[in-house]
Design a protein around this nucleic acid. Sequence first.
DNA 1: GTCCATGCAAACTGTTTGCACGCGC
DNA 2: GCGCGTGCAAACAGTTTGCATGGAC
Lengths: 149, 149
Amino acid sequence: MSESRDMLREVFRETGRRLTSQRCLILDVLEASDEHLDAEAVYELAKDRAPDISLATVYRTLTLLREMGFVEEHRLGEGHCHYEAVHEEPHYHFTCRKCGKVIEFDAPLISRIRRDLSQREGVKITKAHLHLTGYCRDCQDRETSGDPV
Amino acid sequence: MSESRDMLREVFRETGRRLTSQRCLILDVLEASDEHLDAEAVYELAKDRAPDISLATVYRTLTLLREMGFVEEHRLGEGHCHYEAVHEEPHYHFTCRKCGKVIEFDAPLISRIRRDLSQREGVKITKAHLHLTGYCRDCQDRETSGDPV
DNA sequence: GTCCATGCAAACTGTTTGCACGCGC
DNA sequence: GCGCGTGCAAACAGTTTGCATGGAC
């Protein structure tokens, strides 16, 4: 654990940033959780180990870690962001419109889509978000409200 | 034009809603634009034709039209939503991280991904959002800031 | 010791809501 | 005329920022 933090420290130093206890802690919290935490949840979990930490620091650190590529930000549709430590493999999300349950999945076909678009439009794609919505197994019979005509 | 509004009126009546001038106007604005407007932009455009319209009405109407399936809401990552009148064909988005340019594209392979996940997880998928980010042709040489390590 | 990072509180943006009036039906 | 929809302003949620203090290096 501590040797991985040393590597981390070096990455920070190279870019003129400091590895503070708060930044360590927030990264720990994200790595320890395999859920998609929002800023408030990260804040609550961090407070358990550092009661004085502030929500502003959580936001600043999440932005920083995102810029450095250590965490990913997802907007799954509820007006606030979710964060998670980066995995090696890309993965995507399904969200149930009824109960909010999130299912993660992989979809290798996305790489074909990326390649096609890159070639056709001459763009360089750095990130793909695929977000499916619908009704999970448990909610399917009750999909009453707020749906297309 | 007016006969299409009559059809619209009927859809509203069936669900106990009223087709007000504001609702018409907002739908007009969205249909007239082939861009992705945010609520503020819809508000500004609507004010040209109805100076007394309020931003609250714009939000309420956008929510309503989304629930009725007439418009789609996109969260392309900047902390506010974009809206557009529904097209028949599904389409997806690429956003340039540098200049914000949006390219729309189709990706028929998505239907395979949808089918796979539905079968594997037993979910019913009603909507797919694919959002690619990266650098457009013009911005590729200057992709300096804020990128993964 | 230097200067970046933090905590606090206030500001800010995008969105929602309570209420009395107005308009579609 | 009944009741949904509107405009207005205030409230709200999530996030950002200014400033003085504190901690990493």
